[in-house]
Amino acid sequence: MSVILRCGPLEARDGEGRELYRGVVVEILEGKLTLLKGPSGSGKTTLLRQLVGLNATEGCVRRLAGRDYTQKILPCWRGAVTLLMQDSPVLPGTIEHNLRFPFSCRSAEGRLFDDERAAELLDIVGLGGIPMDRSAGALSGGERHRLALVRGLLWSPSILVADEPLSGLDTVRAQRCFDLLLEFAHRPGRAVLCVLHDAVLGRGTDRTLNLVNGRLEAG
């Protein structure tokens, strides 16, 4: 088991200035689905956002598959360590646009949108019946989460970081989506780090990190 991603040290404070954690170094193992656990308010979302560089960090070193990513090339890092944000926001426009937009960014670096795979994944998560030209804004919360998951899988970054990607889904659908994440994580050169609200689903994970009392411990 090799460490594919190493990022830290990280520290953060909450809105009132209280320290959430300090000196945290995140290590992710290749080919594994790692679950990030911790009591609510412990800073899990903040930690994920700092990891991908959407929240400010200071003196943090980011390393992925033997390559260091400086602050300057953070967009490049985010293209490889991609966050599925909490609440799964959508862009105005069609479902298809929402699936395709990353591929027109410079960070795509030659990645191509796979129409067949898109249709296949949409079918698996239960969105197959919805026309691709429908406005994404009309989707329900659960549908947005599934759309975000499909986009993430199609994007196929080295590390998929997911912040409660399955909330609002019924048990059967949640399990199906979780299986997709697991399957993705087990590929060579890939890994998944996620926060789940549902402990039952988390049973299938390979590894757990606990964010407790401001420290990150492997469980």
């Binding site: 959407l54 967009p75 490049c76 985010r78 490889a80 966050l83 599925l84 937009f101 960014c105 410079r106």
Partner: peptide
């Protein structure tokens, strides 16, 4: 802002 961050999360540059 979530729309902007969504694009940033997929590696979009500031300009994009």
């Amino acid at each position: 802002k979530h729309e902007v961050e969504l694009m940033l999360a997929f590696g979009a540059t500031r300009g994009e």
